[in-house]
Design a protein around this nucleic acid. Sequence first.
DNA 1: GCAAAAGTGTTAGGTGTACACCCATGA
DNA 2: TCATGGGTGTACACCTAACACTTTTGC
Lengths: 229, 229
Amino acid sequence: MNAFYLGYEKFYVSVDCVCLGFKGSTLYTLITKRKFEPLIGEDSLMGGFVHPDENLEQAATRVVAEYTGIEGVYLEQVGAYGDVGRDTGERVISVAYYALIDMELFNEDLYEVHDTRWHNVNQINTLIFDHRVILADAVEILRKKAANRPIGFNLLPEKFTLPQLQLLYEAIYNTTLDKRNFRKKILDMDILEKQEDKDKSSSKRGAFYYTFNKKKYDQLLQRGYYFSL
Amino acid sequence: MNAFYLGYEKFYVSVDCVCLGFKGSTLYTLITKRKFEPLIGEDSLMGGFVHPDENLEQAATRVVAEYTGIEGVYLEQVGAYGDVGRDTGERVISVAYYALIDMELFNEDLYEVHDTRWHNVNQINTLIFDHRVILADAVEILRKKAANRPIGFNLLPEKFTLPQLQLLYEAIYNTTLDKRNFRKKILDMDILEKQEDKDKSSSKRGAFYYTFNKKKYDQLLQRGYYFSL
DNA sequence: GCAAAAGTGTTAGGTGTACACCCATGA
DNA sequence: TCATGGGTGTACACCTAACACTTTTGC
């Protein structure tokens, strides 16, 4: 116990998690109804207080698992939010993370348990406190990151098609991309494995499945290869 | 007072500041000797505990002013660091910022007051706790940011020369740049104002001074102009 | 007059972008 | 057989990167 520290105030510290998912051609984020006062019942990001025995990222992992049923998701820190009046109940300093969720793994039983729903990222209205800012910052960081690192795969099932992947990037960047240019670029990176089978759910002809080859990706990274989409 | 919050633990929250400066052709960072136990006397970033009545950025501004004598520096958040054992005294969650300092404004009286010194960023050895990681992360973020936003000017005096500016970018990216290409690119952005007078300190011929035109820069930003260096 | 840094244009190669048609299949 | 989405190659414009010589001036 160090005497020096004693003169200073302590704070509640929480983590707030932006859970992002992708389905069809739109990006979704999970929103829950706040369970306690103040602002009980209002739309909110998933949050929780940090425990004394866990790191920040562990806390975020715990919260995401609690609300989605998925362990070990891809997490990235968005930043710390500590304005004096941001939480209208008490002074709470929050560390925000975004999580990339494969929506196929989401446990739908939890919809009721926590009163959650997936919302189109571009159609979010009011959220409590500064959660809209956190959401906007998270999406912004995802955009930048996705432009140099192939992290989008975390939003897709293990097997996905190129049209699906393109729709994902179009949703992230909120734009449209040229099919031929997109395919050329992504295939030239040599980090995808073409599968034998096809997804026939969205067309008669069917689109070949691909998988992300993380081993190849890591090798290329080490050789200083620069990815950009 | 909300009953719900009461069940949770509170934490010490500090800010740690990476003060970056530039002189000659090298990037410097300010390092201080820690003033209290544990690890008293060891090399450390500038830090301080957050006060109940201030935001995180205000805390960082306060700490930077305390150690440099400069108010209102350019600040950017690096992230939150909260591993359980990171501070070997108590559990402290730290929010890190980097500050871009015009070294000409630095108050040298403070060298003694706080036992500080400027060190070449590339020649930092051991720092306490996770401060080396914080420093590395800060420089990394600066590099990325400097590539799309002309923030380097915050490291230079109001009037600077193009050779100086080039040396700055070479220091940030740790590389060498072609003089003609660099000048063309930066002048084409149309955010610099050529002055009448020259800096004769580094050559007989002298190099023209320039100033950064923030108004023009903001206009271009609003028009969606994309900067990149 | 010479040393030392400031300043100045052009070209080739590569990268990004625009663009249109055929293919496979189920209904 | 036709409607629907999957899959493929090329040409041009632009941007990046490489490169060498002249100018100024204090000593």
